[in-house]
Structure formats: structure tokens, C-alpha cells
Design a protein around this nucleic acid. Structure first.
Length: 190
DNA sequence: CGATAGATCGGCT
DNA sequence: GCCGATCTATCGC
């Protein structure tokens, strides 16, 4: 386990853009398995791509209307899970990629590959590697099985358009650790 | 390398 | 009915 400080609950009680950027370089573990967050995306209620656009509450997105600092997990394309952190004012941050650090053997077994680059580089892969499913939906990020540890230093952050969307495709709400080999995709040049 | 197809199903209109 | 905050395999250059 990293001997670093846990992120406090109020870390998440800010707008999603701020939290998405601040999360780069922090360490996430679930049941002791995880690594360094290298890629995130932000979604808020003004964003047509958000599940909670215009604060429309549905059965699926209910957790986004609760307190910040909780996990919002949903199924996508009928077969993958995506992990989000709920932030202030009905917003959320999608966790898109980790640099694997802890429990890599377990991640390899769950993912069915030895290739480190393919363990947590993408929101669906990351959930499979960490054992995330709807069982974690609504759980607090400040208590087991979750653990989040503060970043050690500053890092150069890349910013660009988000991945896989058909709405609001030009918003610059994807954040990444610059030049990390564990990004789900490269960031566009300038 | 980029483009494309297929898998697969819950949530929402 | 339609479609998606994805992934993998496969095809073409």
C-alpha cells in the first residue's frame, strides 16, 4: 500500500473539470488493486453528453444527484462497466485509464492478458481489471473497498476532446498525464 | 497505421 | 425500437 495521504471527502465537492484535472497523478485502488490515474473526463449538467444533462433525473443516474465523493457505475454497450466519481452540483468524472501499480497479477488474471498496457487503458478495461460492477454503484470513495491517495508531485496535464461521444464532441474535457504510455489513446497535437 | 464490424443489453423515448 | 462516456478482431494500405 502506498504510504500517502487519502483524498478527503471535500476533494470531490468541486466542479468536475477541477476534480478531473486534480485526479491525474493520484492513486486509486479497489480492494488493494489499482494504480495511478492517468486519464479522466468531466461531465456536468450543462453538458449534452452527460447522463444528467439539464439535471434530468432517471433511474440510472440517481447517484449523481447525491453527495459528492461517491462512485457512479453504469453499464455501457450491454457488456462493459464505467466508473465515475460524483462531484459537486450533479457532475461526475469518468475514470478512463490507470497506470497499473498494485495487484497486477490479479488484474492480469481478470483481464486475461499479461500485457500491462492492456490492463487499465480504457474505462471498460479498468473496471474489469479492478473488479468494478454495479455492486459498487453509490459506494463512498473514502471507505473500503475504495482508496484514493494524493499525488506526490506536479505533473504536465494534456487536455483535449473526449472519446467516443456523439454529443458535445468539441468540449475540451478530457485530461491526461502528458505522454503516459497508459493513456487509452494519444491526445491530438496542439 | 487507420477503418470497420460485431458482440450484446439496459435505459430511455 | 433505438442507441450508447467500449473492446476486440480483422481487413486494407
Amino acid at each position: 500500500m502506498p504510504s500517502r495521504k487519502h483524498l478527503p471527502k471535500h476533494f470531490f465537492a468541486r466542479d468536475a473539470d477541477t476534480v478531473a484535472r486534480a485526479l491525474i497523478g493520484t492513486t486509486l485502488t479497489v480492494g488493494g488493486v489499482g494504480g495511478i490515474i492517468v486519464e479522466t473526463e468531466s461531465y456536468d449538467s450543462t453538458d449534452p453528453a452527460s447522463h444528467a444533462f439539464e439535471r434530468r433525473q432517471t433511474g440510472r443516474n440517481a447517484v449523481m444527484f447525491g453527495a459528492p465523493g461517491h462512485a457512479y457505475v453504469y453499464r455501457i454497450y450491454g457488456m462493459h462497466w464505467c466508473l465515475n466519481f460524483v462531484c459537486a452540483d450533479v457532475s461526475a468524472v469518468l475514470i478512463r485509464a490507470l497506470e497499473p501499480r498494485l495487484g497486477t497479477a490479479k488484474m492480469q488474471a481478470r483481464r486475461g492478458t499479461e500485457v500491462e498496457r492492456l490492463l487499465c487503458s480504457g474505462p471498460g478495461r479498468l473496471c474489469q481489471a479492478l473488479g468494478i460492477s454495479d455492486a459498487q454503484n453509490g459506494k463512498a470513495l473514502t471507505a473500503p473497498p475504495f482508496a484514493l491517495y494524493r499525488a506526490t508531485g506536479t505533473a504536465e496535464i494534456s487536455v483535449g476532446p473526449r472519446i467516443g461521444l456523439t454529443k458535445a464532441v468539441d468540449l475540451q474535457r478530457r485530461f491526461g498525464l502528458a505522454r503516459s504510455p497508459f493513456l487509452s489513446q494519444r491526445f491530438p497535437k496542439a
